[in-house]
Simulated scan of single mutants.
Amino acid sequence: MKFTQSAVLAFAATAVAAPSATTKDEPRQAASGCSSAVTLDPSSNPFKKYTLHPNKFYRDEVTAAVAQLSDSSLAAAAAKVADVGSFLWIDTIANIAKIEPALADVPCTNILGLVIYDLPGRDCAAKASNGELKVGEISRYKSEYIDPIVTLLKAHPNTAFALVIEPDSLPNLVTNSDKDTCKNSAAGYRDGVAYAIKNLNLPNVIMYLDAGHGGWLGWDANLKPGAQELAKAFKAGGSPKQLRGIATNTAGWNAWDLSPGEFSTASDAKYNKCQNEKIYVDTFAPELKSAGMPNHAIVDTGRNAKTGLRAEWGDWCNVNGAGFGVRPTSSTGDELADAFVWIKPGGESDGTSDSSATRYDSFCGKDDAFKPAPEAGTWNQAYFEMLLQNAVPSF
């Protein structure tokens, strides 16, 4: 799994922990689901009622990482990361099999976060997270990927689900439409996203459509086209009532409310008023509303505790010096921002630094990228330890 894009000024994100209070780490629990069917009200913030569940797969990765630490104080701090709620990435057809076991220990007070991420021609503007489905394989996406997920979620009506829909896909069509790979992927992206949100529109599900971040669609010239692109998908999917808005800063580095922004002194800063994610959420929301789409947001704070680390907005891969950010909480201080959440599992690589690898992307070899780094989605122990040591607030 990765983050975003190839170059173009309008990219990537800054990092800083949000100032609002964090929630207490949730203890691991064995109780599963509720005693009756869950109905999520899309007109209200689900994270006010439900705690993002610390899914077993990330907990297992963190537990294995703790076992490698010889420093007892660092190990004790690392162990606490396992109890932080995070999203589970369903980024291949095979990984659909993770949903059932991930459900086993979700109590009625929690909501299980899933990232829906397997479009044909995925990651059209970069190489690190190219997917398994080729351009044109939209029928496979629908029948072998989305349909089985829908069946599973329907089979568990007593569990609440929060879904992030297809990171990077529609934002790529806004800013990378000149790339042949994105031109070729466009029809499948639009069709696939519409199909996904239409069919995943279940009473126990709340959905957020990925909208990049302030350093990407936040540029003045991208705001309206970005909102229109997302709204078209929303309407093509039948305007599903369980879609509440957008996800921003997925796997990103942008600060929530750093002022002035990380790139506020850049020569082109005058063309982007969205110098942090708060400004982006508040600025993009009216554009979404005008385009006819719900406009609440969740913001990924999983790795945005430090700023000033990147050479430019577009540097997205394994940023060196990063730290875990604010824990998941609905206390954002902004009515439009439902919650700070951990979407990207901190410790899993964004992409390999091995320039001879098939999926090597030059962004993973830049001076501000951590090295060495394994393939996207693979655990990087040293990077995890860095995130832990640089965490704000600390563990």
Rank of each mutant, 00 (worst) to 15 (best):
A94V: 09
D178Q: 10
N158C: 04
P107L: 04
G188M: 02
G245P: 01
R140G: 00
P225S: 10
E312V: 14
T329M: 06
G302Q: 13
A12W: 15
V16G: 14
G121V: 07
P393S: 09
E26S: 13
P286G: 09
I149C: 05
T23G: 13
V62E: 03
F370I: 03
D71Y: 11
S356F: 03
N318H: 07
V62W: 09
L387Q: 14
N276R: 00
K48N: 15
L200R: 04
L309F: 09
M1N: 12
L288Q: 04
Q68G: 05
L170W: 04
P372Q: 04
A194D: 01
L9G: 12
M1S: 13
R244N: 08
G347K: 05
A247S: 15
T14V: 08
R190E: 14
F370P: 07
K235T: 12
V319G: 04
F47W: 00
S394C: 10
P294C: 06
L309Q: 06
C317N: 02
N176W: 07
I279E: 11
G347Q: 02
S356R: 10
W256I: 13
G237Q: 04
F384N: 02
A221D: 11
A79F: 07
E262A: 03
A196P: 00
A82Y: 06
F87M: 03
L223D: 03
G346I: 11
E229C: 10
G215K: 06
D354E: 10
E262R: 11
A233W: 05
A64I: 06
T265L: 12
G333A: 05
A37E: 12
N320H: 11
E335M: 11
D354H: 02
S36F: 07
A82S: 14
A369R: 03
Q228F: 03
Y141S: 07
L163A: 05
D210I: 04
T175M: 08
G292W: 10
H53L: 07
S6F: 12
D268C: 04
T159W: 00
Q5M: 12
P27W: 08
E100W: 00
G113T: 01
N272C: 09
A187N: 14
N184G: 15
M386R: 12
T23E: 10
A65G: 02
V81W: 10
D41E: 01
N55Q: 15
G85M: 01
E348S: 11
V66S: 02
A37N: 09
Y208F: 13
K241R: 15
P294Q: 05
K273G: 06
N249R: 02
A77D: 14
